[in-house]
């Protein structure tokens, strides 16, 4: 269960570090959602995946997190297909927070965060050394330590989301995937979560989040991936993707929305301002 075994299994010719989607085709039943998608996620950066409803953002992030199996192609982590990893070994590399996780009734914040340690347990060792420290640290950096013994169900939406993120942090992985972590939160809590994402990146993690708000994505992410109809329409830094007339054209093409691109007065990043309708 060390990195050396991972490295020794690396297929020849595919030495890329980090997460790579290679010619993915993913669908449900007769519908194909992703069709021939290729993507390399920059290591150590905060990547935001954006796009209109139904473009396949969630499908992509769930496939990257191996909760969906592609029909064709593969997701590679450090050059090795996810399916070739042992599940717990992979879970020590890659954490995923789904959009709508099940809240066990009566679960406390501490008990929830502790479940992030499962990848380090084995059938004969259900408590691992370092569990307590990792749980305490994860609760500390997400600011939920004071809530540790409160039932999750009694917390506000923002506190609850922090607790879930603390659980993925307790998993202590270099890669963290989040499916719409800011949805259903009020604006202050959305900004809060985006700061937590940035902090995770500052600690050296690769963070990938599906986001809805283009301006927030441009302001907080290092790298934007714009999805449209099951493919990557554009990717790059926020300035390169959304800046100037090209950015306005892209929003028109992808979201079918007429807009101009202004500059965020605080961060200097591009800001999408929809045109007034007559």
């Amino acid at each position: 269960m060390t990195d050396t075994t991972a490295a020794s299994h690396t297929a020849p010719g595919t030495t890329a570090r980090g997460l790579v989607a290679d010619d993915l085709e993913v669908g449900y039943g007769p519908t194909t959602v992703l069709d021939g998608l290729n993507l390399t996620l920059p290591a150590g950066a905060f990547t935001a995946i954006v796009g209109p409803n139904g473009c396949g953002k969630s499908t992509l992030v769930r496939t990257l997190a191996r909760t969906l199996r592609p029909r064709r192609g593969a997701v590679l982590l450090d050059g090795r297909p996810l399916t070739a990893w042992r599940p717990k070994q992979l879970a020590q590399q890659l954490a995923f927070l789904p959009q709508d996780p099940v809240v066990p009734d009566g679960v406390t914040v501490r008990s929830l965060v502790a479940r992030g340690r499962h990848p380090y347990h084995s059938p004969l060792r259900q408590w691992a050394p370092g569990d307590d420290e990792a749980v305490a640290h994860a609760m500390d950096v997400t600011g939920v330590t004071a809530l540790a013994d409160d039932p999750l169900a009694e917390l506000s939406g923002g506190q609850r989301q922090r607790a879930w993120i603390a659980m993925t942090l307790a998993q202590d992985t270099p890669h963290v995937l989040l499916d719409e972590p800011t949805s259903f939160l009020d604006l202050a809590h959305q900004i809060d979560v985006l700061h937590v994402c940035r902090d995770m990146r500052d600690q050296g993690r690769t963070v990938v989040a599906v986001l809805h708000d283009l301006n927030q994505a441009a302001r907080y992410a290092d790298h934007l991936v714009v999805m449209h109809e099951g493919r990557v329409h554009a990717e790059g830094t926020p300035d390169a993707v959304l800046g100037g007339d090209a950015g306005a054209r892209l929003v028109g093409d992808v979201f079918d929305l007429a807009c101009e691109i202004a500059t965020d007065p605080q961060s200097g990043t591009p800001m999408v301002v929809p045109l007034a309708r007559a």
Binding site: R62, A65, R66, T67, P87, K88, Q89, L90, A91, Q92, L94, A95, F96, L97, P98, P101, V102, P104, V107, L112, R115, G116, H118, P119, H121, Q126, Q171
Partner: peptide
Amino acid sequence: SSLDSLALGDELATSLG
């Protein structure tokens, strides 16, 4: 420990290994 993870739903359990 696996049952604790399973209680969080199949998706999260999968990503916990």
